[in-house]
Design a protein around this nucleic acid. Structure first.
Length: 327
DNA sequence: CGTTCAGTGTTGGGTTCTAA
DNA sequence: TTAGAACCCAACACTGAACG
């Protein structure tokens, strides 16, 4: 605790030393005789002094690490756009970006950079953001008022433990989910956990649809969730018979319905990127949660949009059959 | 006008250094 | 001896200038 606290005098003294070094350098250059290397050598102590000046601007100064200084500085100016050069001066290290990443992902501080904001804007609803975050360019940062997300920091630490295990990606995802029952988990976290940019989402879907784990998203039972957020509801796998529709049954149902949505007639040949209809799904007329069977008679082909509609309106078997006849 | 390339910044992976 | 700080590297995205 008895760490040396730099006083104003220290700063002044450092500044004087720096000035005299620069004067010497200036003399050297104007003499016209010094070669390039001599000039460079002369500047080295000035570089160190300049760095010392920067790191001692904050009252905490050198008594804390570079990461701490960055955090203190950011906290002093929340919701303001901070350029990377400021953080370079305050931190006094070249790799300050690495420290910023640690603050964000390992410790859960809300520091956004130009790039991270870009991906967040794609994913979520930032209309209510206090500052105009969309104005931030790369190499600029903003510290939000929202405070430290300790839970996110905990999840990050846990994620790293699981991530290093020598088990399949699906098992890693499942273990992570089981340790975060009922919590909102972002796709970004799952992507990191899986060390895999493209396939993790498929693995999550397999956990849900093929293995019957209750991983819920906006489109799968929890419409109040924002895009890109997953919730593992409970550590309980659905019964085997509920999960898998036999391929032979699936084919029979699709052929019977001419590979088209029974409500709107949409089929996979009509797929368009801007059309929300992207999949053909099989709907259980008698819900499988209510012991409805995976039989040809109990299944109808429906596009994902109308399938959502049926479930959103909790339509019963007779209602559905009547509804698909209305065109 | 599209392609290529250099420069810059971010990120995730890692190693080395150092102070307690 | 060890945890945390500092540093290094590769991959990638983005931008603007040069080029054909």
């Amino acid at each position: 605790m008895a760490k040396k606290k730099p006083s104003a005098f220290d700063l002044l003294k450092t500044k004087e030393e720096l000035t005299s070094l620069l004067d010497n350098f200036s003399d050297l250059v104007s003499s016209g005789t010094a070669d390039v290397r001599a000039q460079v050598l002369e500047l080295i102590p000035a570089f160190y002094l300049l760095r010392k000046l920067g790191t001692n601007i904050l009252p905490e100064g050198d008594s804390v690490g570079a990461r701490e200084r960055i955090l203190i500085y950011l906290q002093k100016y929340p919701e303001k756009i901070i350029s990377s050069d400021e953080l370079l001066v305050v931190s006094g290290i070249t790799d300050y970006q690495r420290r910023i990443r640690e603050l964000r992902s390992e410790m859960g501080w809300p520091v956004l950079s130009g790039n991270t904001i870009k991906s967040m804007l794609k994913e979520g609803d930032w209309d209510n953001m206090v500052a105009d975050v969309s104005a931030i360019k790369p190499a600029q940062y903003i510290f939000l008022q929202s405070g430290q997300d300790k839970e996110a920091a905990y999840r990050w630490k846990l994620s790293n433990v699981i991530r290093r295990k020598n088990i399949s990606i699906k098992d890693k995802l499942l273990e992570f989910f089981k340790n975060n029952i009922g919590r909102s988990i972002t796709g970004e976290e799952l992507s990191y956990l899986a060390k895999d940019a493209t396939e993790w989402a498929r693995r999550v879907r397999e956990l849900r649809t093929e293995e019957g784990w209750p991983v819920k998203t906006r489109n799968t039972g929890r419409p109040e969730l924002p895009v890109g957020v997953y919730v593992f509801e409970e550590d309980k796998q659905a019964e085997q018979h509920d999960r898998k529709i036999e391929d032979s049954t699936r084919i029979k149902v699709l052929e019977r319905d001419h590979f088209s949505c029974r409500k709107c007639g949409w089929n996979l040949n009509m797929i368009r990127p801007e059309d929300p209809r992207q999949f053909l799904e099989l709907h259980h007329l008698e819900y499988h949660a209510h012991k409805g069977e995976n039989s040809e008679e109990n299944l109808i082909t429906i596009c994902n949009v109308h399938h959502d509609y049926i479930h959103k309106h909790k339509m019963k078997k007779d209602q559905v059959l009547e509804w698909v006849e209305e065109k």
